[in-house]
Design a binder for these strands. Structure first.
Lengths: 122, 122
DNA sequence: CAGTATCCTTGCGGATACTG
DNA sequence: CAGTATCCGCAAGGATACTG
């Protein structure tokens, strides 16, 4: 994410890599999926995702905001309220991401079975 | 990938996390995408993907084989030929993954523009 | 050709403490 | 509440050398 490596020639591959690298972040996809049904505030987002530290959630949200996938709305109150929601661009990624999520739910059992079989063979 | 953390309660979320963790590997998605159009041997796969070390390609392929997404065919010749191809399970993941790839190609320009705008603002 | 073995660096990401 | 700041361990993964 810090610049295009010299060995890269194809922009198609590079652009694919860029978005995969976005997802690669391990938390990014989870955040987009969590925001898919509507905006959430920082704390709720953290609970919803589960297992993410404040640091990682902040960094992930900043990256997503920077890339134009998430919008941040600050309500100047005390205590502060910060609402995060997907932009149009973010929503356009939500659908394909959801398809991956569905694939996971449908095929995890198969994957785990394959894994057990493979391990038993060794 | 080494066991279910104690803090996790929802299996739906967990299964999502499992497959995202698969993709998370940074190279896994690239490999599945590269094999989508048909089988490839180790060397060709490496060239096709680009920028991946032999070590990482080997590890990624073993993981995918273990999870039942990729099949490995060894042709006992000299020099050896090893062909990799997607299983039915692997092919079922290919489609949603391809959707992500398409999203990338279509929206990378927007993402980069948003990124530049964000950076200019700082 | 298709790996394996080994070493070594980098940075992800958790834990903790603090603030507007 | 919604972060920031700092420290730090560990493992991902690159480079290099070697092998059936």
């Amino acid at each position: 994410m810090t610049g295009k490596p010299k060995w890269l020639t194809s922009t198609a591959i590079w652009s694919t890599r860029v978005s995969l690298a976005r997802i690669d972040n391990k938390w990014t996809a989870m955040v987009v999926l969590a925001l898919g049904k509507g905006g959430l505030r920082f704390g709720d987002l953290r609970v919803r995702i589960g297992g993410i530290s404040a640091k990682m959630l902040t960094e992930t949200l900043r990256d997503l905001e920077r890339d134009g996938l998430v919008a941040r709305h600050i309500h100047a109150e005390m205590p502060p309220r910060v609402q995060y929601e997907l932009t149009d661009l973010g929503r356009s990624l939500y659908k394909p991401l959801q398809a991956i999520g569905r694939w996971a739910e449908e095929h995890t059992a198969e994957v785990l079975a394959a894994r057990d079989a493979y391990d038993a063979r060794q």
